[in-house]
């Protein structure tokens, strides 16, 4: 496990507003974890939470959420941690990302090759 690191966006006001001053991100969210919403946004929710739920009607990768919201990855991880705790989203984590050492098996790679050849 990589240790949790503080966020520093270089823009403290915006970070404070978006994250409520928290600075610890949920490292369980990989760049390519696919996020799907479990319910629609409701009144009174924070605008970033609303936007994430709108995007995640269909599975959406963490990195695409960050690009769309124009927020650093770490800030998005914090927001996703909130939504997960509220039961608003589910996360489909990548198989291979548990550790750097876990290399992909041949069956998975065969599927990848097949997909690339069919492009």
């Amino acid at each position: 496990m990589t240790p949790r690191r503080p966020v520093d966006t270089g823009d403290p006001d915006r970070l404070y507003t978006v994250t409520g001053g928290r600075s610890r991100a949920d490292d369980a969210f990989d760049l390519v974890t696919l996020v799907v919403r479990e319910s629609e946004p409701s009144a009174g929710m924070q605008s970033e939470h609303v936007r994430i739920l709108e995007m995640c009607r269909h599975p959406t990768a963490v990195v695409e959420i960050a690009a769309e919201l124009r927020l650093p990855i770490t800030v998005v991880r914090i927001l996703l941690g909130d939504l997960l705790a509220m039961g608003r989203i589910t996360a489909r984590h990548p198989r291979a990302a548990e550790s750097v050492a876990s290399l992909p098996d041949s069956a998975l790679l065969k599927e990848v090759l097949h997909g690339l050849r069919n492009l």
Partner: peptide, 17 residues
């Protein structure tokens, strides 16, 4: 969807890098 975004299939479950 917001302009330009193309969603993944609903069955998408494994992200690779």
């Amino acid at each position: 969807l917001p302009a330009g975004r193309t969603p993944l299939a609903d069955a998408a479950e494994t992200g690779l890098k």
